[in-house]
């Protein structure tokens, strides 16, 4: 599987409280409340961190087996992508 890189949509606004992010989608003003794992993924969506590296960090920090971590991460990414909160690219992204 080719490597993938996540980038937060510049249209979002977000804040982290006690390790958990609240992310606003400006298109419909929906507030997305992320748990600690979701927040790790969200904060890593900088266009430069590979999804494989994010999954490895989740396994390390949350004591999850790699297969499950990858499956859950991909499902979570698909959800955020569907909501327009982030984009997925196969190439490294430049800082805006």
């Amino acid at each position: 599987m080719p490597e993938a890189y996540l980038t937060q949509s510049p249209r979002t606004a977000w804040r982290v409280y006690d390790g958990e992010a609240a992310v606003l989608c400006p298109d419909d003003s929906t507030l997305n409340s992320l748990n600690a794992v979701g927040t790790l993924i969200w904060e890593s969506a900088d266009g430069k961190t590979a999804v494989s590296a994010i999954v490895a960090r989740i396994c390390e920090e949350f004591d999850v087996d790699p297969e499950r971590a990858e499956r859950d991460t991909m499902a979570f990414i698909a959800k955020l992508r569907e909501r327009g909160l982030l984009t997925v690219s196969e190439t490294l992204q430049q800082a805006p």
């Binding site: 249209r11 409280y17 609240a22 400006p26 298109d27």
Partner: peptide
Amino acid sequence: PKEALARLLPNVLFFAREADVTA
């Protein structure tokens, strides 16, 4: 604060939908 924010935002009067002002 996270729950409070989720409960406050729907009560904020704001009609513009542009991303920068919403942010």
